[in-house]
């Protein structure tokens, strides 16, 4: 790795001021794991890193409101979220997903904000939060704005977060009577990056599904909603024929990309069965308190 300048601002606003909208070699660093990987691989050589370490305490609170809304400070580590019993009770899908997200050491260091801002489509947290209808508040030099997680991504490692903006908070709407699941299919070792991720959140009125939010990851260049498949599922019952139609619709709408974890043709088949499996898993999940 090559030398660089390290800045350690004390406030979020100060941090934003140290970022440069026109210089890609200036980046914020929270936990630093993903960034360090890119630096070691020689794909990123920063001139300046803006460490968010000293502003972490102010932006790492995790709380569930009386109405059941989950608010996560972007600097909260993934393991802090994992250990938060209130969040786990209110959002079992997050609690089930976290123990298999990367590994303990990464979760201890990596922050929720970084995991969302990195833009790697293989990550587990973005599709789950997208399915749950979460939004992030993004702080820039002048103002802050809210963006839905499913609208955060514009391409492979590309997001709407500007070079001089930071994600400050994540807000996940209450589960209420929703059910949710995250299906992660690996093609090689069990702890590999997924070949496909499918996240789903839905209401079940007896046999009828509604408010289905279905999200694909890993097999596509970015985390994305599968709206055509959602249309088929909404108002229908989760029988074999419907799930199969939804799977086919997902395959028709998702721009799947091939990689060493599977060809396009193979990942299509994974998505085709993955949609139904994710919905069934959500339906059989235990309800929230």
């Amino acid at each position: 790795m090559t030398p660089f300048e390290l800045m350690e601002p004390q406030t979020l606003q100060e941090a934003v001021g140290l970022l440069d909208p026109d210089d890609a070699s200036v980046r914020p660093v929270a936990g630093g794991t993903a960034l360090m990987l890119m630096m070691k691989a020689g794909v990123f050589a920063p001139t300046r890193l803006v460490s968010l370490q000293h502003i972490g305490a102010q932006h790492s609170e995790i709380g569930v409101s009386g109405a059941g809304e989950l608010r996560i400070g972007a600097m909260a580590t993934l393991s802090a979220l994992e250990r938060n019993t209130k969040a786990a009770e209110a959002f079992p899908v997050i609690a089930r997903m976290l123990p298999r997200l990367s590994n303990v050491r990464v979760r201890n260091v990596a922050c929720v904000g970084g995991a969302l801002a990195h833009g790697d489509p293989h990550m587990d947290l973005p599709p789950v939060l997208a399915a749950l209808g979460a939004k992030v508040s993004i702080v820039g030099p002048k103002e802050s704005r809210d963006v839905a997680v499913d609208e955060l991504y514009t391409g492979y490692y590309e997001t709407v977060v500007g070079r001089n903006e930071l994600i400050a908070d994540v807000i996940v709407p209450a589960m209420q009577s929703r059910k949710a699941a995250y299906l992660k299919i690996t093609a090689r070792s069990a702890d590999d990056w997924p070949a496909l991720g499918v996240a789903v959140a839905l209401h079940a009125d007896g046999n009828t599904l509604r408010d289905v939010r279905l999200v694909a990851s890993a097999a596509t260049a970015m985390v994305m909603r599968l709206t055509e498949a959602e249309k088929i599922l909404n108002g229908a019952s989760a029988d074999d024929a419907t799930l199969k139609r939804a799977g086919d619709a997902a395959v028709a709408e998702a721009p799947i990309i091939g990689d060493i974890r599977g060809s396009v043709a193979y990942k299509r088949e994974l998505l085709r069965v993955g949609v139904g499996r994710a919905v069934r898993q959500a339906l059989s999940s235990r309800p929230t308190h």
Binding site: L6, G32, T33, M36, L37, S51, V104, R105, V106, N108
Partner: peptide
Amino acid sequence: GQPVSGCLYFAVM
């Protein structure tokens, strides 16, 4: 008190 990967952890931190 938290295990980390030393190879991905900036020493200054």
